[in-house]
Design a binder for these strands. Structure first.
Lengths: 148, 148
DNA sequence: TATAATTTAATTGTATACAATTGAATTTTT
DNA sequence: AAAAATTCAATTGTATACAATTAAATTATA
Protein backbone atom coordinates (compact mmCIF):
# COMPACT_ATOMS: atom_id res chain seq x y z
CA UNK A 1 0.00 0.00 0.00
CA UNK A 2 1.48 3.36 -0.97
CA UNK A 3 1.97 5.85 1.83
CA UNK A 4 -0.34 8.84 2.14
CA UNK A 5 2.55 11.09 1.19
CA UNK A 6 3.24 9.19 -2.00
CA UNK A 7 -0.40 9.09 -2.96
CA UNK A 8 -0.69 12.82 -2.47
CA UNK A 9 2.29 13.78 -4.59
CA UNK A 10 0.35 13.44 -7.82
CA UNK A 11 -2.17 16.02 -6.62
CA UNK A 12 0.44 18.72 -6.04
CA UNK A 13 -0.07 21.76 -8.25
CA UNK A 14 3.54 21.81 -9.41
CA UNK A 15 3.40 18.16 -10.45
CA UNK A 16 0.54 18.75 -12.84
CA UNK A 17 1.09 19.14 -16.56
CA UNK A 18 -2.27 20.69 -17.30
CA UNK A 19 -2.00 23.57 -14.89
CA UNK A 20 1.25 25.11 -16.21
CA UNK A 21 -0.10 24.69 -19.73
CA UNK A 22 -3.36 26.41 -18.81
CA UNK A 23 -1.48 29.19 -17.00
CA UNK A 24 1.20 29.62 -19.68
CA UNK A 25 -1.41 29.74 -22.41
CA UNK A 26 -3.24 32.52 -20.61
CA UNK A 27 -0.05 34.45 -19.88
CA UNK A 28 1.03 34.29 -23.52
CA UNK A 29 -2.39 35.46 -24.64
CA UNK A 30 -2.03 38.34 -22.20
CA UNK A 31 1.22 39.26 -23.98
CA UNK A 32 -0.67 39.41 -27.26
CA UNK A 33 -3.23 41.82 -25.86
CA UNK A 34 -1.43 45.14 -26.37
CA UNK A 35 -0.51 44.25 -29.96
CA UNK A 36 -4.02 43.03 -30.73
CA UNK A 37 -5.49 46.14 -29.19
CA UNK A 38 -3.72 48.17 -31.89
CA UNK A 39 -5.79 46.36 -34.51
CA UNK A 40 -8.89 46.14 -32.28
CA UNK A 41 -8.99 42.32 -32.04
CA UNK A 42 -9.22 39.90 -29.13
CA UNK A 43 -7.08 36.76 -29.18
CA UNK A 44 -9.95 34.55 -30.31
CA UNK A 45 -10.86 37.01 -33.02
CA UNK A 46 -7.19 37.02 -34.06
CA UNK A 47 -7.01 33.24 -34.52
CA UNK A 48 -10.15 33.40 -36.65
CA UNK A 49 -8.42 35.99 -38.82
CA UNK A 50 -5.26 33.84 -38.95
CA UNK A 51 -7.34 31.13 -40.61
CA UNK A 52 -8.97 33.58 -43.01
CA UNK A 53 -5.59 35.01 -43.97
CA UNK A 54 -4.64 31.51 -45.10
CA UNK A 55 -7.95 30.67 -46.65
CA UNK A 56 -10.19 33.53 -47.69
CA UNK A 57 -13.36 31.44 -47.64
CA UNK A 58 -14.20 28.63 -45.21
CA UNK A 59 -17.29 27.01 -43.78
CA UNK A 60 -18.07 27.61 -40.15
CA UNK A 61 -17.86 23.89 -39.43
CA UNK A 62 -14.34 23.64 -40.83
CA UNK A 63 -13.30 26.81 -39.02
CA UNK A 64 -14.57 25.33 -35.78
CA UNK A 65 -12.63 22.14 -36.39
CA UNK A 66 -9.39 24.00 -37.04
CA UNK A 67 -9.77 26.21 -33.97
CA UNK A 68 -11.35 23.61 -31.64
CA UNK A 69 -14.29 25.95 -31.08
CA UNK A 70 -17.99 25.16 -31.32
CA UNK A 71 -20.90 27.15 -32.68
CA UNK A 72 -21.74 28.47 -29.23
CA UNK A 73 -18.45 30.34 -29.25
CA UNK A 74 -18.12 31.02 -32.96
CA UNK A 75 -21.56 32.33 -33.84
CA UNK A 76 -21.46 35.45 -31.64
CA UNK A 77 -17.75 35.94 -32.41
CA UNK A 78 -18.29 35.88 -36.16
CA UNK A 79 -21.27 38.19 -35.85
CA UNK A 80 -18.99 40.70 -34.12
CA UNK A 81 -16.29 40.37 -36.79
CA UNK A 82 -18.93 40.82 -39.46
CA UNK A 83 -20.12 44.01 -37.75
CA UNK A 84 -16.51 45.23 -37.81
CA UNK A 85 -16.53 44.62 -41.54
CA UNK A 86 -13.70 42.06 -41.47
CA UNK A 87 -15.72 39.16 -42.88
CA UNK A 88 -19.05 38.22 -44.40
CA UNK A 89 -21.29 35.38 -43.26
CA UNK A 90 -23.59 33.81 -45.83
CA UNK A 91 -25.43 30.55 -46.21
CA UNK A 92 -24.15 28.19 -48.86
CA UNK A 93 -26.38 28.28 -51.93
CA UNK A 94 -26.09 24.52 -52.42
CA UNK A 95 -26.65 23.59 -48.76
CA UNK A 96 -28.55 26.01 -46.57
CA UNK A 97 -27.23 24.38 -43.38
CA UNK A 98 -23.71 25.54 -44.11
CA UNK A 99 -22.53 29.01 -43.12
CA UNK A 100 -19.74 30.26 -45.36
CA UNK A 101 -17.30 32.78 -43.91
CA UNK A 102 -15.44 35.04 -46.33
CA UNK A 103 -12.81 37.62 -45.45
CA UNK A 104 -13.49 41.11 -46.77
CA UNK A 105 -10.77 43.32 -48.24
CA UNK A 106 -10.68 45.14 -44.92
CA UNK A 107 -10.18 41.82 -43.14
CA UNK A 108 -7.41 40.80 -45.50
CA UNK A 109 -5.84 44.22 -45.12
CA UNK A 110 -5.38 43.65 -41.40
CA UNK A 111 -2.84 40.97 -42.20
CA UNK A 112 -0.13 43.50 -43.02
CA UNK A 113 -0.48 45.19 -39.64
CA UNK A 114 -0.22 41.80 -37.90
CA UNK A 115 3.07 40.66 -39.37
CA UNK A 116 5.19 41.97 -36.53
CA UNK A 117 3.18 40.22 -33.81
CA UNK A 118 4.60 36.65 -33.92
CA UNK A 119 8.17 37.94 -33.65
CA UNK A 120 7.30 40.13 -30.67
CA UNK A 121 5.65 37.23 -28.87
CA UNK A 122 8.58 34.98 -29.74
CA UNK A 123 10.95 37.49 -28.19
CA UNK A 124 9.14 37.49 -24.88
CA UNK A 125 8.83 33.69 -24.74
CA UNK A 126 12.60 33.59 -25.23
CA UNK A 127 12.86 29.87 -26.08
CA UNK A 128 15.78 28.29 -27.90
CA UNK A 129 14.98 26.96 -31.39
CA UNK A 130 15.31 23.45 -29.99
CA UNK A 131 12.89 24.15 -27.15
CA UNK A 132 10.38 25.74 -29.51
CA UNK A 133 10.60 22.73 -31.78
CA UNK A 134 10.26 20.23 -28.90
CA UNK A 135 7.30 22.13 -27.47
CA UNK A 136 5.57 22.29 -30.81
CA UNK A 137 6.06 18.56 -31.34
CA UNK A 138 4.76 17.60 -27.90
CA UNK A 139 1.74 19.90 -28.14
CA UNK A 140 0.78 18.42 -31.49
CA UNK A 141 1.05 14.93 -29.99
CA UNK A 142 -1.20 15.95 -27.10
CA UNK A 143 -3.76 17.46 -29.45
CA UNK A 144 -3.71 14.27 -31.48
CA UNK A 145 -4.09 12.05 -28.42
CA UNK A 146 -6.81 14.08 -26.74
CA UNK A 147 -8.97 14.42 -29.83
CA UNK A 148 -8.63 10.80 -30.99
CA UNK B 1 13.20 42.56 -49.18
CA UNK B 2 11.58 39.29 -48.10
CA UNK B 3 8.96 37.88 -50.42
CA UNK B 4 5.30 38.08 -49.51
CA UNK B 5 5.28 34.33 -49.07
CA UNK B 6 8.15 34.38 -46.60
CA UNK B 7 6.66 37.24 -44.62
CA UNK B 8 3.36 35.42 -44.36
CA UNK B 9 4.75 32.16 -43.05
CA UNK B 10 4.97 33.44 -39.48
CA UNK B 11 1.22 34.13 -39.50
CA UNK B 12 0.23 30.58 -40.37
CA UNK B 13 -1.83 28.91 -37.68
CA UNK B 14 0.34 25.80 -37.61
CA UNK B 15 3.51 27.86 -37.14
CA UNK B 16 2.20 29.46 -33.96
CA UNK B 17 3.24 28.21 -30.55
CA UNK B 18 0.47 29.92 -28.65
CA UNK B 19 -2.40 28.42 -30.58
CA UNK B 20 -1.58 24.72 -30.02
CA UNK B 21 -0.93 25.51 -26.37
CA UNK B 22 -4.26 27.28 -26.05
CA UNK B 23 -6.04 24.45 -27.87
CA UNK B 24 -4.22 21.63 -26.04
CA UNK B 25 -4.88 23.26 -22.70
CA UNK B 26 -8.59 23.40 -23.45
CA UNK B 27 -8.70 19.83 -24.76
CA UNK B 28 -6.95 18.50 -21.66
CA UNK B 29 -9.36 20.41 -19.45
CA UNK B 30 -12.17 18.83 -21.42
CA UNK B 31 -10.72 15.42 -20.52
CA UNK B 32 -10.88 16.37 -16.85
CA UNK B 33 -14.57 17.25 -17.08
CA UNK B 34 -16.15 13.80 -16.61
CA UNK B 35 -13.92 13.04 -13.61
CA UNK B 36 -14.55 16.43 -12.07
CA UNK B 37 -18.25 16.07 -12.64
CA UNK B 38 -18.19 13.07 -10.28
CA UNK B 39 -17.07 15.38 -7.49
CA UNK B 40 -19.13 18.34 -8.75
CA UNK B 41 -16.19 20.64 -9.52
CA UNK B 42 -15.19 22.66 -12.57
CA UNK B 43 -11.54 22.75 -13.61
CA UNK B 44 -10.94 26.17 -12.06
CA UNK B 45 -12.63 25.06 -8.85
CA UNK B 46 -10.42 21.95 -8.93
CA UNK B 47 -7.15 23.89 -9.10
CA UNK B 48 -8.31 26.01 -6.17
CA UNK B 49 -8.88 22.78 -4.23
CA UNK B 50 -5.46 21.47 -5.34
CA UNK B 51 -3.89 24.45 -3.58
CA UNK B 52 -6.02 24.00 -0.47
CA UNK B 53 -5.14 20.30 -0.30
CA UNK B 54 -1.50 21.37 -0.05
CA UNK B 55 -2.12 24.29 2.25
CA UNK B 56 -5.29 24.30 4.30
CA UNK B 57 -5.26 28.05 4.85
CA UNK B 58 -4.15 30.70 2.37
CA UNK B 59 -4.85 34.35 1.65
CA UNK B 60 -6.79 35.18 -1.46
CA UNK B 61 -3.89 37.25 -2.77
CA UNK B 62 -1.45 34.36 -2.48
CA UNK B 63 -3.98 31.97 -4.01
CA UNK B 64 -4.39 34.32 -6.96
CA UNK B 65 -0.62 34.52 -7.40
CA UNK B 66 -0.25 30.75 -7.46
CA UNK B 67 -3.11 30.25 -9.91
CA UNK B 68 -2.51 33.36 -12.04
CA UNK B 69 -6.09 34.48 -11.38
CA UNK B 70 -7.32 37.88 -10.20
CA UNK B 71 -10.04 38.87 -7.78
CA UNK B 72 -12.55 39.29 -10.59
CA UNK B 73 -12.31 35.57 -11.25
CA UNK B 74 -11.61 34.35 -7.73
CA UNK B 75 -14.22 36.24 -5.73
CA UNK B 76 -17.30 34.68 -7.38
CA UNK B 77 -15.54 31.30 -7.63
CA UNK B 78 -14.69 31.20 -3.92
CA UNK B 79 -18.21 32.31 -3.02
CA UNK B 80 -19.52 29.28 -4.93
CA UNK B 81 -17.09 26.90 -3.24
CA UNK B 82 -18.05 28.36 0.13
CA UNK B 83 -21.73 27.73 -0.66
CA UNK B 84 -20.81 24.13 -1.46
CA UNK B 85 -19.25 23.93 1.99
CA UNK B 86 -15.75 23.15 0.72
CA UNK B 87 -14.07 26.22 2.20
CA UNK B 88 -14.62 29.21 4.43
CA UNK B 89 -13.83 32.84 3.58
CA UNK B 90 -13.02 35.19 6.43
CA UNK B 91 -11.27 38.50 6.82
CA UNK B 92 -7.94 38.42 8.60
CA UNK B 93 -8.28 39.71 12.15
CA UNK B 94 -4.97 41.53 11.98
CA UNK B 95 -5.56 43.08 8.54
CA UNK B 96 -9.11 43.57 7.39
CA UNK B 97 -8.04 43.92 3.74
CA UNK B 98 -6.93 40.31 3.57
CA UNK B 99 -9.40 37.52 2.83
CA UNK B 100 -8.31 34.22 4.35
CA UNK B 101 -9.47 31.02 2.66
CA UNK B 102 -9.63 27.86 4.73
CA UNK B 103 -10.59 24.38 3.54
CA UNK B 104 -13.36 22.71 5.54
CA UNK B 105 -13.28 19.02 6.48
CA UNK B 106 -15.65 18.42 3.58
CA UNK B 107 -13.24 20.19 1.25
CA UNK B 108 -10.29 18.21 2.54
CA UNK B 109 -12.33 15.02 2.24
CA UNK B 110 -12.69 15.56 -1.50
CA UNK B 111 -8.97 14.93 -1.88
CA UNK B 112 -9.36 11.18 -1.50
CA UNK B 113 -11.86 11.00 -4.35
CA UNK B 114 -9.51 13.01 -6.57
CA UNK B 115 -6.45 10.80 -6.29
CA UNK B 116 -7.21 8.78 -9.39
CA UNK B 117 -7.63 11.82 -11.64
CA UNK B 118 -4.00 12.72 -12.49
CA UNK B 119 -3.25 9.15 -13.57
CA UNK B 120 -6.32 9.02 -15.80
CA UNK B 121 -5.38 12.30 -17.47
CA UNK B 122 -1.78 11.11 -17.84
CA UNK B 123 -3.01 7.99 -19.61
CA UNK B 124 -4.93 9.95 -22.22
CA UNK B 125 -2.08 12.41 -22.85
CA UNK B 126 0.11 9.38 -23.48
CA UNK B 127 3.48 11.16 -23.32
CA UNK B 128 6.80 9.44 -22.69
CA UNK B 129 8.44 10.33 -19.36
CA UNK B 130 11.05 12.27 -21.31
CA UNK B 131 8.39 14.26 -23.18
CA UNK B 132 6.49 14.99 -19.99
CA UNK B 133 9.69 16.20 -18.37
CA UNK B 134 10.67 18.36 -21.36
CA UNK B 135 7.20 19.86 -21.58
CA UNK B 136 7.14 20.66 -17.89
CA UNK B 137 10.56 22.31 -18.10
CA UNK B 138 9.65 24.44 -21.11
CA UNK B 139 6.29 25.51 -19.66
CA UNK B 140 7.98 26.63 -16.45
CA UNK B 141 10.48 28.63 -18.48
CA UNK B 142 7.67 30.30 -20.41
CA UNK B 143 5.79 31.14 -17.22
CA UNK B 144 8.97 32.60 -15.80
CA UNK B 145 9.66 34.66 -18.93
CA UNK B 146 6.12 35.94 -19.42
CA UNK B 147 5.61 37.03 -15.82
CA UNK B 148 9.02 38.72 -15.42
C1' DT C 1 -41.25 8.54 -51.71
C1' DA C 2 -42.35 9.07 -46.93
C1' DT C 3 -39.79 8.50 -42.69
C1' DA C 4 -35.82 8.29 -39.93
C1' DA C 5 -31.28 9.66 -39.08
C1' DT C 6 -27.77 12.99 -39.57
C1' DT C 7 -25.68 17.38 -40.14
C1' DT C 8 -25.23 22.11 -39.21
C1' DA C 9 -25.69 26.49 -36.87
C1' DA C 10 -28.22 29.08 -33.49
C1' DT C 11 -29.82 29.48 -28.85
C1' DT C 12 -29.80 28.97 -23.84
C1' DG C 13 -27.67 28.65 -19.54
C1' DT C 14 -23.64 28.36 -16.66
C1' DA C 15 -18.89 29.37 -15.61
C1' DT C 16 -14.90 31.49 -16.27
C1' DA C 17 -11.30 35.37 -17.44
C1' DC C 18 -9.67 39.86 -17.15
C1' DA C 19 -9.28 45.07 -17.58
C1' DA C 20 -10.72 48.89 -15.17
C1' DT C 21 -12.80 51.04 -11.36
C1' DT C 22 -14.15 51.49 -6.59
C1' DG C 23 -13.70 51.62 -1.75
C1' DA C 24 -11.99 50.24 2.57
C1' DA C 25 -7.83 49.30 5.35
C1' DT C 26 -3.11 49.89 6.09
C1' DT C 27 1.45 51.76 5.41
C1' DT C 28 4.52 55.38 4.08
C1' DT C 29 5.72 59.97 3.78
C1' DT C 30 5.72 64.61 5.17
C1' DA D 1 -0.49 62.89 13.53
C1' DA D 2 -2.37 64.28 8.90
C1' DA D 3 -1.99 63.48 4.02
C1' DA D 4 -0.56 60.63 0.32
C1' DA D 5 0.37 56.32 -1.50
C1' DT D 6 -0.32 51.49 -1.50
C1' DT D 7 -2.63 47.16 -0.89
C1' DC D 8 -6.38 44.19 -1.30
C1' DA D 9 -10.88 42.42 -2.54
C1' DA D 10 -15.22 43.46 -4.65
C1' DT D 11 -17.69 45.23 -8.50
C1' DT D 12 -18.70 46.30 -13.32
C1' DG D 13 -18.54 45.42 -18.06
C1' DT D 14 -17.04 42.79 -21.97
C1' DA D 15 -15.66 38.55 -24.18
C1' DT D 16 -15.10 34.01 -24.37
C1' DA D 17 -16.00 28.71 -23.70
C1' DC D 18 -18.82 24.87 -23.78
C1' DA D 19 -22.68 21.49 -22.66
C1' DA D 20 -27.18 20.80 -23.96
C1' DT D 21 -31.05 21.79 -26.63
C1' DT D 22 -33.51 23.35 -30.68
C1' DA D 23 -34.67 23.80 -35.40
C1' DA D 24 -33.94 23.75 -40.16
C1' DA D 25 -31.92 21.36 -44.12
C1' DT D 26 -30.16 17.37 -46.14
C1' DT D 27 -29.16 12.52 -46.67
C1' DA D 28 -30.03 7.71 -45.87
C1' DT D 29 -33.24 4.13 -45.30
C1' DA D 30 -37.34 1.41 -45.25
Amino acid sequence: MPSIKRMDRCLRLDHQLCFPMYAASKEIIRKYTPYLKEIDLTYTQYIVMLVLWEQERISMRELGERLYLDSGTLTPLLVKLEKKGLLVRERSKTDERIMEITATDKGIGLKVKSRKIPKEIGKCLNLSPKEAYELSKILKKILKNTTE
